[in-house]
Amino acid sequence: MIIGSLAGPLCAGGGFCGGSEEVIEHQRISAASYTFSAALPAMLATTASETCRILQENPEIITQLRENTKTIRAQLDPRSDWVVCSSSVENPIMLLVLKPEVIESKRLNVGDQEQILQDCVDECLANGVLVTRLKSMPPALGAAPRDRGWQPQPALKVCVTTGLSKKEIEKAGVVIRHAITKVMTRRK
Protein backbone atom coordinates (compact mmCIF):
# COMPACT_ATOMS: atom_id res chain seq x y z
CA MET A 1 0.00 0.00 0.00
CA ILE A 2 1.23 3.48 -0.83
CA ILE A 3 -0.17 6.40 1.13
CA GLY A 4 0.43 10.11 1.27
CA SER A 5 -1.00 12.31 3.95
CA LEU A 6 -0.53 15.79 5.33
CA ALA A 7 -2.30 14.91 8.57
CA GLY A 8 0.66 14.10 10.81
CA PRO A 9 3.62 16.12 9.63
CA LEU A 10 1.80 19.34 8.76
CA CYS A 11 -1.24 19.23 11.05
CA ALA A 12 -3.44 19.27 7.99
CA GLY A 13 -5.69 16.63 6.46
CA GLY A 14 -6.53 14.67 3.37
CA GLY A 15 -4.29 12.43 1.36
CA PHE A 16 -4.27 9.50 -0.98
CA CYS A 17 -3.99 5.74 -0.74
CA GLY A 18 -2.98 3.35 -3.51
CA GLY A 19 -3.04 -0.43 -3.39
CA SER A 20 -5.24 -3.44 -3.98
CA GLU A 21 -9.00 -2.95 -4.07
CA GLU A 22 -9.40 -4.74 -0.71
CA VAL A 23 -6.82 -2.53 1.02
CA ILE A 24 -8.25 0.68 -0.42
CA GLU A 25 -11.79 -0.27 0.59
CA HIS A 26 -10.64 -1.03 4.14
CA GLN A 27 -8.77 2.29 4.34
CA ARG A 28 -11.69 4.24 2.89
CA ILE A 29 -14.29 2.75 5.24
CA SER A 30 -12.40 2.46 8.51
CA ALA A 31 -9.76 5.20 8.55
CA ALA A 32 -10.21 8.53 10.26
CA SER A 33 -11.02 11.39 7.90
CA TYR A 34 -7.68 13.06 8.57
CA THR A 35 -5.92 9.95 7.25
CA PHE A 36 -7.89 9.49 4.06
CA SER A 37 -10.41 11.77 2.51
CA ALA A 38 -11.88 12.33 -0.91
CA ALA A 39 -10.54 15.87 -1.10
CA LEU A 40 -8.31 18.12 0.91
CA PRO A 41 -10.40 20.97 2.39
CA ALA A 42 -9.18 24.43 1.41
CA MET A 43 -8.48 25.48 4.99
CA LEU A 44 -6.27 22.44 5.59
CA ALA A 45 -4.50 22.91 2.25
CA THR A 46 -3.73 26.48 3.29
CA THR A 47 -2.42 25.23 6.64
CA ALA A 48 -0.14 22.74 4.91
CA SER A 49 1.09 25.35 2.43
CA GLU A 50 1.81 27.89 5.17
CA THR A 51 3.59 25.23 7.26
CA CYS A 52 5.84 24.39 4.30
CA ARG A 53 6.65 28.08 3.84
CA ILE A 54 7.51 28.54 7.53
CA LEU A 55 9.75 25.47 7.53
CA GLN A 56 11.57 26.64 4.40
CA GLU A 57 12.21 30.04 5.92
CA ASN A 58 13.15 28.67 9.38
CA PRO A 59 14.68 25.17 9.04
CA GLU A 60 16.04 25.46 12.59
CA ILE A 61 12.50 24.75 13.81
CA ILE A 62 12.96 21.09 12.85
CA THR A 63 16.27 20.93 14.72
CA GLN A 64 14.67 22.46 17.81
CA LEU A 65 11.74 20.03 17.59
CA ARG A 66 14.13 17.07 17.43
CA GLU A 67 16.00 18.38 20.49
CA ASN A 68 12.75 18.91 22.42
CA THR A 69 11.63 15.40 21.50
CA LYS A 70 14.90 13.93 22.83
CA THR A 71 14.61 16.02 25.99
CA ILE A 72 11.09 14.97 26.94
CA ARG A 73 11.70 11.37 25.92
CA ALA A 74 14.70 11.25 28.27
CA GLN A 75 12.37 12.23 31.13
CA LEU A 76 9.80 9.56 30.31
CA ASP A 77 10.75 6.38 28.53
CA PRO A 78 13.93 5.20 30.20
CA ARG A 79 13.02 6.64 33.61
CA SER A 80 9.46 5.40 34.11
CA ASP A 81 8.70 2.11 35.84
CA TRP A 82 5.21 2.15 34.35
CA VAL A 83 5.22 3.23 30.70
CA VAL A 84 7.24 2.84 27.54
CA CYS A 85 7.11 4.98 24.40
CA SER A 86 5.87 2.95 21.44
CA SER A 87 6.54 5.74 18.91
CA SER A 88 9.62 6.11 16.76
CA VAL A 89 12.52 7.82 18.56
CA GLU A 90 12.31 11.02 16.47
CA ASN A 91 8.52 11.24 16.37
CA PRO A 92 7.33 14.37 18.21
CA ILE A 93 3.98 12.67 18.79
CA MET A 94 4.77 10.21 21.56
CA LEU A 95 2.48 7.34 22.47
CA LEU A 96 3.11 6.11 26.01
CA VAL A 97 1.71 2.65 26.73
CA LEU A 98 1.73 0.73 29.98
CA LYS A 99 4.58 -1.77 30.08
CA PRO A 100 3.50 -5.37 29.42
CA GLU A 101 4.79 -6.50 32.82
CA VAL A 102 2.68 -3.81 34.53
CA ILE A 103 -0.43 -4.91 32.64
CA GLU A 104 0.24 -8.52 33.54
CA SER A 105 1.16 -8.00 37.21
CA LYS A 106 -1.86 -5.77 37.86
CA ARG A 107 -4.14 -7.85 35.60
CA LEU A 108 -5.37 -4.81 33.71
CA ASN A 109 -7.93 -5.15 30.97
CA VAL A 110 -8.37 -2.52 28.26
CA GLY A 111 -10.99 -0.65 30.29
CA ASP A 112 -8.70 -0.55 33.33
CA GLN A 113 -5.84 0.77 31.20
CA GLU A 114 -8.04 3.47 29.68
CA GLN A 115 -9.19 4.58 33.14
CA ILE A 116 -5.63 4.69 34.47
CA LEU A 117 -4.49 6.74 31.49
CA GLN A 118 -7.45 9.11 31.86
CA ASP A 119 -6.49 9.58 35.51
CA CYS A 120 -2.95 10.40 34.29
CA VAL A 121 -4.38 12.97 31.84
CA ASP A 122 -6.37 14.56 34.67
CA GLU A 123 -3.35 14.61 37.01
CA CYS A 124 -1.13 16.18 34.34
CA LEU A 125 -3.75 18.85 33.63
CA ALA A 126 -4.03 19.63 37.36
CA ASN A 127 -0.27 20.32 37.23
CA GLY A 128 -0.37 22.54 34.14
CA VAL A 129 0.59 20.02 31.44
CA LEU A 130 -1.84 19.09 28.69
CA VAL A 131 -1.70 15.54 27.37
CA THR A 132 -4.47 13.32 26.07
CA ARG A 133 -5.31 9.68 25.60
CA LEU A 134 -5.14 8.00 22.25
CA LYS A 135 -8.77 7.64 21.24
CA SER A 136 -9.90 4.62 19.28
CA MET A 137 -12.70 4.60 16.78
CA PRO A 138 -15.46 2.01 16.83
CA PRO A 139 -15.24 -0.44 13.94
CA ALA A 140 -16.81 0.85 10.73
CA LEU A 141 -20.21 -0.51 9.81
CA GLY A 142 -18.84 -2.29 6.75
CA ALA A 143 -15.68 -3.58 8.47
CA ALA A 144 -14.66 -7.14 7.80
CA PRO A 145 -15.29 -9.51 10.73
CA ARG A 146 -11.53 -9.88 11.33
CA ASP A 147 -11.25 -6.09 11.82
CA ARG A 148 -14.20 -5.63 14.18
CA GLY A 149 -12.42 -6.80 17.34
CA TRP A 150 -9.09 -5.05 16.85
CA GLN A 151 -8.40 -1.90 18.83
CA PRO A 152 -5.14 -0.02 19.41
CA GLN A 153 -3.46 -0.42 22.79
CA PRO A 154 -4.57 2.31 25.19
CA ALA A 155 -1.95 5.05 25.32
CA LEU A 156 -1.18 8.56 26.46
CA LYS A 157 -0.55 10.95 23.60
CA VAL A 158 2.14 13.57 24.19
CA CYS A 159 2.69 16.14 21.44
CA VAL A 160 6.06 17.88 21.59
CA THR A 161 6.28 21.53 20.58
CA THR A 162 8.89 24.12 19.70
CA GLY A 163 6.87 26.68 21.64
CA LEU A 164 8.58 25.77 24.93
CA SER A 165 12.15 26.14 26.10
CA LYS A 166 14.32 23.13 26.90
CA LYS A 167 13.79 23.76 30.63
CA GLU A 168 10.00 23.90 30.17
CA ILE A 169 10.08 20.67 28.13
CA GLU A 170 12.11 18.94 30.86
CA LYS A 171 9.64 20.14 33.49
CA ALA A 172 6.68 18.89 31.43
CA GLY A 173 8.36 15.48 31.14
CA VAL A 174 8.87 15.34 34.90
CA VAL A 175 5.24 16.34 35.52
CA ILE A 176 4.01 13.60 33.18
CA ARG A 177 6.28 10.96 34.75
CA HIS A 178 5.26 11.94 38.29
CA ALA A 179 1.57 11.96 37.35
CA ILE A 180 1.86 8.42 35.99
CA THR A 181 3.71 7.29 39.12
CA LYS A 182 1.13 8.93 41.39
CA VAL A 183 -1.78 7.29 39.60
CA MET A 184 -0.12 3.88 39.43
CA THR A 185 1.01 3.78 43.08
CA ARG A 186 -2.44 4.89 44.22
CA ARG A 187 -3.99 1.94 42.37
CA LYS A 188 -4.02 -1.40 44.15
Rank of each mutant, 00 (worst) to 15 (best):
A32C: 10
S33Q: 06
S33G: 12
S33P: 12
S33K: 15
S33N: 13
Y34K: 10
Y34Q: 08
Y34M: 07
Y34F: 11
Y34A: 06
Y34W: 04
T35P: 03
T35E: 13
T35W: 08
F36T: 12
S37H: 07
S37E: 05
S37L: 09
S37D: 13
S37A: 12
S37N: 12
A38N: 11
A38P: 04
A38R: 15
A38G: 15
A38C: 04
A39N: 06
A39K: 08
A39E: 09
A39V: 06
L40E: 05
L40A: 10
L40V: 13
L40K: 05
P41W: 00
P41Q: 00
A42S: 12
A42C: 11
A42M: 08
A42L: 11
M43A: 13
M43P: 05
M43W: 07
M43G: 14
L44F: 06
L44R: 06
L44S: 03
L44M: 10
L44T: 01
L44C: 07
L44H: 02
L44N: 08
L44P: 02
L44K: 04
A45S: 06
A45P: 04
A45D: 03
T46K: 13
T46M: 09
T47Q: 11
T47N: 12
T47M: 10
A48L: 02
A48P: 01
A48V: 00
S49A: 15
S49I: 13
S49T: 13
S49L: 12
E50S: 14
E50N: 11
E50Q: 15
E50T: 14
E50K: 14
T51P: 06
T51L: 08
T51I: 04
C52G: 10
R53V: 13
R53G: 05
R53D: 08
R53A: 14
I54K: 11
I54W: 10
I54N: 02
I54L: 14
L55V: 05
L55W: 00
L55R: 03
L55T: 00
Q56S: 13
Q56N: 14
Q56T: 14
Q56V: 06
Q56W: 12
E57D: 07
E57A: 13
E57T: 03
N58I: 03
N58G: 01
N58D: 09
N58V: 01
N58K: 13
P59Y: 00
P59K: 02
P59V: 00
P59S: 01
P59L: 01
P59E: 00
P59T: 02
E60S: 09
E60F: 04
E60H: 14
E60V: 04
I61F: 02
I61M: 07
I62S: 09
I62M: 10
I62G: 02
I62D: 04
I62Q: 06
T63I: 04
T63Q: 10
T63E: 07
T63L: 05
T63H: 05
T63C: 01
T63D: 13
T63K: 12
T63W: 00
Q64D: 03
